[in-house]
């Protein structure tokens, strides 16, 4: 029991070792997207350009306005708005033009980058507190409060996600899976509090996370099978005359998995916010208090509670599928394992 809690707190601390690169690259990709949007609008500033595009048709002002507000809420931008109390303009930075390759690239700190930092700071605080708490406990003591809640989630990821999907040698991948689970969970939940923004509702963030899963999977496959085994795996154990079909399919299959992970998390988190805002805007479009009281508010609360569930579910699904892919890549059996892999594409 004591040993278990020690390994657990070690695993929790290892989580942070993985967190830093994740953060940095999420930041880089968010910056890249900011650069793209500023590139599209030429020399104009980003925000006015976006508003100009969406407010282009003046025919239906109410709906255009609703669409504007929704897109403003969903998309990444340079302003952190606290609506009745004003807003914070985030700094716009760019790489000096003298730098050879990256010269002139926009690396502004955007809303979602701030949320990423907030989430990682929160994770550091929460898990430091919980991890330190375990040092004060004796072997026969059960943790209380926050530590207990986190333990339940960590145990869930360890047993139901990692152990049951990866099997032998799952401990190696546990830090990564725990990091991904809690990072996505906190991102999702922070997006649901007022004035928050969902960093996982940005396709750059989810793409970064899936690229991590991709590399973890590929490296695990190489380690488990060696280069020869890995290449054999690509042929799917078929006759050599079929290789010209099977090898491309297998290679494409390696890339569709992270793509599906990316879009699933991104679309789930974005869709919930769009639905809540659309329901609220029904009453504005119809200009009716009755609709607001009977439709907008009750349904928005219902969707909000559903989103609370979806926040956990999507963190679980992302972690679960990552574990599944790692498990499939490292499995040592021959053909039946491969059939399972095909079924999951």
């Amino acid at each position: 029991m004591k040993r278990l809690s020690v390994t657990r707190s070690k695993a929790i601390f290892k989580v942070f070792a993985v967190l830093l690169p994740l953060l940095l690259s999420g930041y880089g990709l968010a910056a890249a997207s900011a650069e793209r949007s500023s590139g599209a609008s030429g020399n104009m500033a980003v925000t006015p350009a976006v508003e100009a595009v969406h407010g282009g048709a003046e025919a239906a002002p109410e709906e255009e306005k609703a669409g504007d507000v929704i897109m403003h809420h969903i998309l990444d931008n340079h302003v952190f708005a606290f609506e009745p109390f004003g807003s914070v303009e985030l700094p716009r930075l760019s790489v000096p033009a003298a730098v050879p390759v990256l010269g002139g690239m926009d690396i502004s700190i955007t809303k979602h980058v701030v949320m990423l930092w907030l989430v990682s700071a929160l994770l550091l605080i929460v898990f430091s507190v919980v991890g330190l708490k375990y040092k004060t406990l004796t072997a026969r003591q059960a943790p209380k409060g926050l530590a207990n809640a986190i333990e339940a989630l960590v145990e869930f990821v360890r047993l139901d996600v990692a152990k049951s999907n990866i099997g032998h040698g799952y401990e190696k991948h546990l830090p990564y899976l725990l990091t991904v689970f809690f990072f996505i969970l906190f991102c999702n939940l922070l997006g649901l509090i007022p004035y928050g923004a969902t960093a996982t509702g940005n396709v750059n963030v989810t793409l970064t996370l899936s690229i991590f899963t991709f590399f973890v999977t590929q490296i695990a496959a190489f380690k488990a099978h060696g280069v020869k085994g890995y290449l054999q795996h690509l042929t799917a154990g078929t006759h050599w005359s079929l290789w010209i079909i099977m090898v491309p399919i297998e290679i494409i299959g390696q890339f569709t998995k992270p793509f599906a992970l990316t879009v699933r998390l991104f679309a789930n988190m974005t869709a919930g916010h769009i639905i809540i805002l659309s329901l609220i805007f029904i009453s504005f479009i119809l200009k009716s208090y009755v609709v607001a009281a009977t439709v907008s508010v009750p349904f928005a609360i219902f969707i909000y509670l559903l989103e609370l569930f979806v926040a956990f579910l999507q963190a679980f699904v992302f972690t679960m599928l990552s574990a599944l892919f790692i498990g499939l890549a490292t499995a040592h059996s021959g053909n039946d394992e491969h059939e399972a892999a095909v079924a999951h594409h």
Binding site: V263, R264, A267, N268, A271, F316, V317, M320, L321, H344
Partner: peptide, 24 residues
């Protein structure tokens, strides 16, 4: 029950993923 639930959630997530591609 627990095995069935896990399988169900994975399959539902995969179907949902495809539907979300369409929605996007």
């Amino acid at each position: 029950t627990s095995d069935i639930r896990t399988t169900m959630i994975i399959a539902a997530a995969l179907i949902e993923g495809v539907a979300l591609f369409g929605e996007v």
